[in-house]
Amino acid sequence: MPQAIELDRLWKFYGDYPALRDLSLNIAQGACCALLGRNGAGKTTLLRILAGLSPFQRGTVRVCGESPRSEKARRLNGFLGHGIGVYEDLSGLENLTFFARVAGIERPASASAHWLERVGLARAASMPVRQFSRGMRQRLALARAFLHAPSVLLLDEPFTALDDRAIAMLTELLTEARRRGATLVLSTHQLREALAIASHVALIENGRLCYAGERTGDMLEDPALLYRLYTKLGAA
């Protein structure tokens, strides 16, 4: 089975302090991996390394077989971090057209218009993002992340602070992405939503991988199970 993401003995240091220690993990193509762990465990650090935003000092990281900073990896990935990643002074259409253009999409303007329609922002197409409501911004962020049909989706706490409409939209987009064979890695505190769609689970504590495996029925019934079993924290 081809691996979308391969981590082999990954170490990330801030100076002499190891933020990630000896992490080895493989995520198969088409899998949906929920990255669990408390704040400061290293989830965001790991996602940023996969997105090519952060260098690492030891080990190897492969996204779609290449280094995360390679052109191919960056073209194929879609990253949704804490910020919405759009420009306040441009309109929704201008934002999406820009990202579509740099992603190399043919006819960027019409692709952007289609996506605006899809996330329910067609009427606000020429309104600057500065005037968007919070829910509108969230939906625009989703459009921006999914616009170029990424093969590897890296999502940092995507359900946090989303309203119901946006959560429904995100879930729909994630399901559709999985159907077309994309690989998903999402870090989350919202155990139920994440475990519902995840096929695999990885638990990180203090920069180390405590558990990695398939998501089982037990976990769905009792989301805090993993924390109890594998970390020193006790109940989450």
């Binding site: 801030y14 100076g15 002499d16 302090y17 400061g40 203090n206």
Partner: peptide, 13 residues
């Protein structure tokens, strides 16, 4: 100085 920085991070974590 680097060693102190890393000890501080360990303590914070």
């Amino acid at each position: 100085a680097r060693e102190i920085d890393s000890l501080r991070r360990i303590a914070n974590a």
